[in-house]
Nucleic acid binder design. Sequence first.
DNA 1: TTGAAAGCGCTAACAC
DNA 2: GTGTTAGCGCTTTCAA
Lengths: 348, 348
Amino acid sequence: MEGKTKSCTIRDVARYCKVGVSTVSRAINDDPEIAPATRERVLEAVRELHYVPNNSARNLKMTESRTVALLVRGIDNYFYQGMYDPIQKDLREAGYDYIIHAVDEVADVTKEASALVKEKRLCGLIILGGRVDKSARELSSIDIPYVLCTVAVPYGKAMPECTTVGIDDERSAFCITDYLIKRGHSRIALLGGKKGDSAVGARRLEGYKRACNEAGQPIDESLIFYMHDDIPEFSVENGYAMMKEAISSGVDFSAVFVISDLMAIGAYKALFEAGIKIPYDVSVVGFDGINLGKFLHPTLTTMCQPRPQMADKAVSELVRMMKGDDHIRHNVFETELLTGESVSTKKD
Amino acid sequence: MEGKTKSCTIRDVARYCKVGVSTVSRAINDDPEIAPATRERVLEAVRELHYVPNNSARNLKMTESRTVALLVRGIDNYFYQGMYDPIQKDLREAGYDYIIHAVDEVADVTKEASALVKEKRLCGLIILGGRVDKSARELSSIDIPYVLCTVAVPYGKAMPECTTVGIDDERSAFCITDYLIKRGHSRIALLGGKKGDSAVGARRLEGYKRACNEAGQPIDESLIFYMHDDIPEFSVENGYAMMKEAISSGVDFSAVFVISDLMAIGAYKALFEAGIKIPYDVSVVGFDGINLGKFLHPTLTTMCQPRPQMADKAVSELVRMMKGDDHIRHNVFETELLTGESVSTKKD
DNA sequence: TTGAAAGCGCTAACAC
DNA sequence: GTGTTAGCGCTTTCAA
């Protein structure tokens, strides 16, 4: 058993094989102009010595790479499931390596991004999730092509000056609320975002309000419930707590619009525990279109974000830009109403 | 609007402020022995120029860091939800920075780990998920403290020679199968791992078999179902497909042991669609103890892996080792039977 | 308190 | 084909 040897460098390998460092470098980089015999000898030594190239040094030296990073904010967000695979596949097919770097909810995406770019000599970047606000300006310090995918833009703010892939939250929320209204519901509760949220929560709230307004229904603030601050955002648990709050508030409603499917699962539970039958007593709609919705009972009616297509687009847009086209584009995807069994038609 | 300026370096900042590079270095690293006035001036320039230090160069130079990496295999695995937070929090409290690096299912964890260690000058590493098989030997090339958390060790293989945190899959599977047997079930279907799996799937299968054997029940191979290769492992969809297969096979069973909770959600759906009532017609138990189980209807009986405690332990073990204690320990956590409403007692 | 200079490990010119 | 060598951008002695 060897002790904690100071990790060996390219020079150690070179010395070991009695060759120059560049020969070792060539061997490990599959340089064609090296004698196959030498290459084998070097590679053998590499294995022998457990040599692993120091990427920092490598990245420092190299002028360009074929590496794209996927920067994810909120790694455990169930919503992204189903996006990693297409992104990875598309990127591979386009001939790029890729790495996933996750940052936690509180991290500064912009900073992480800049650091990552420098560190890895990235040639492209996809930022998944997060929001763009005051730090948006600083995004411009990223000097390689990048695209923002499903990144929330606070209501009222201008779109960032970079390529984006997303949906129109306001419009989608409008549509699904309108769907409920068309089905005869006039008292629709909203399980929304955090109080004071200015991103997705706010956009979806706006859509909800507009639908009510256009249908001539006054907004009843007592029908609007906000996420609990002490429970993770957009979680099942939060949906459960919010729905319980709605029920115990005693306010009357025949339908609920829950702004995320995961929260809707929690809402289901709260309704069930209260003996309220979906959709007979109360109709429920979610938002996102995660796969779990189809496995609920009753299956969940929701607005589906076309995640695989969005993932594909994020990659194709990035590839386009990496090839030199520095046009900025905002790709707004249509959401699709996924009809489940959780909504009933109300006849007065 | 500035063009794509070649990203600026410490020398650019130095020149801009008319100071030496080391002064800039001191400023950005909060070196105490620098005049506050100079520091401010430099920091101002840093902002002005959008200067971001190149981590590769930094890591290359620095001899030690306080950075720990969390290497996750299968980033979209719902199971890990609830582990990121404690790990992050514990690490912060212990005074370490940390980064999350995700590798996809097919990547070579060992290689990624070695590269990451060198690249980031890590002082510690937690590997979450994945399995240890032929590459186990090469783990030894990681020359910093690291711990394997919820990493599957193939059946029959010796435990790796490093600190681990996990559960006894065989024993846990035994317990929950035994629980079903004690509740009067004698024909228990198993929705297991992939055919030929040698890790968790195999261990849980062994536990199932042992429970049957010890209860004097012969193993009926027709009761054992394997994951479909064309559907993601351990997914809801796979559980659904497997359960459908079990139902349509016509084989008789009064209970099902599903080796993951997520799969159990799919199984629920298949049973429901077939008009089979849980737990009256068929009892269902899962494995893992993810939060969603409590939100199902009926709530899921399952073996709960104490994820937060495992996360805490992973960190405390790592910290212990980083402080110089190079003792290896295998921490095997007890799983806990979480009783839900999905199991009925069968009286003959 | 600050600046000059020596590398960290690697790649890529350039010589041989 | 292979070796020598000049940096990549940074931190860190060591002098001033």
